[in-house]
Design a protein around this nucleic acid. Sequence first.
DNA 1: CTATGTGCAAATCTTTTGCAGGCTA
DNA 2: TAGCCTGCAAAAGATTTGCACATAG
Lengths: 139, 139
Amino acid sequence: MTPAALERSQSWLGQADLRPTRQRLALASLLVGDGQNRHVTAEGLHDAVLGTGDRVSLATVYNTLRAFCEAGLMQEVTVDGSRSYFDTRVDDHPHFYMEEDGSLMDAPSAEFHIQALPDVPDGYEIAKVDVVIRLRKIA
Amino acid sequence: MTPAALERSQSWLGQADLRPTRQRLALASLLVGDGQNRHVTAEGLHDAVLGTGDRVSLATVYNTLRAFCEAGLMQEVTVDGSRSYFDTRVDDHPHFYMEEDGSLMDAPSAEFHIQALPDVPDGYEIAKVDVVIRLRKIA
DNA sequence: CTATGTGCAAATCTTTTGCAGGCTA
DNA sequence: TAGCCTGCAAAAGATTTGCACATAG
């Protein structure tokens, strides 16, 4: 982990008053160490952290991702019934989902626009609008 | 099951060359017996069929819903990581999801419009655009 | 009769939880 | 030191599967 990545990870955790433990720093540096947005699954992040030589249990990866979401550092994105994805970008934005390999990425939202939303039933308000654009490889 | 519901169920299965077994007819009549669209979970449909007095195993409900999807009679909708929803309406349309009780319904799509979609990465084409409008009860 | 369906129980897969021990502030 | 974290293994929940029996065409 570079010094810059360490510092980013520490301040990211600090924002949410989460203690900078070894495991959290290891995960945070993979998530925000380079300042880029990431979309990960628990399994994928676990593999990635093992790849760096750090040892973090899968249960801790799950618990930590959940803690990051509760702290508002990440958000969960539902695209595939069988797995949860976690996104380091926390505003409401559309996603591309590659059906081919199950990867998820941000769709350029500048070019995306919803012209009109349907009327919401009485007594309800919109919590969030999820847009997932499923992509298929052209044969 | 009314004669009309039976006939609708039979022709629905017939469209897809699925044999009209007792279990499939029982499920189909709950899904399309009255000509309305339905959004169900496997568990919910299983409870419903038991409520009518018919006996269908939960495994068969799962297998049958999957068969209906493969046959193009229904589509799976992903809104909640922990459960699958199945929709009898098979075109691409937006949904309302009530976070409060986990129910799913069609959003009036006439009033819904996407003005511009982001550019799709080279080599890919859009398979489907999923829009889920999450609703929260106003306090 | 033969290929399809069905039911049950067991297997799978992802995610959560209980609890004993470890570590940060 | 006190409370928060972590790891492990076990639990939990949703869905799938193997296999023997049943049934539609």
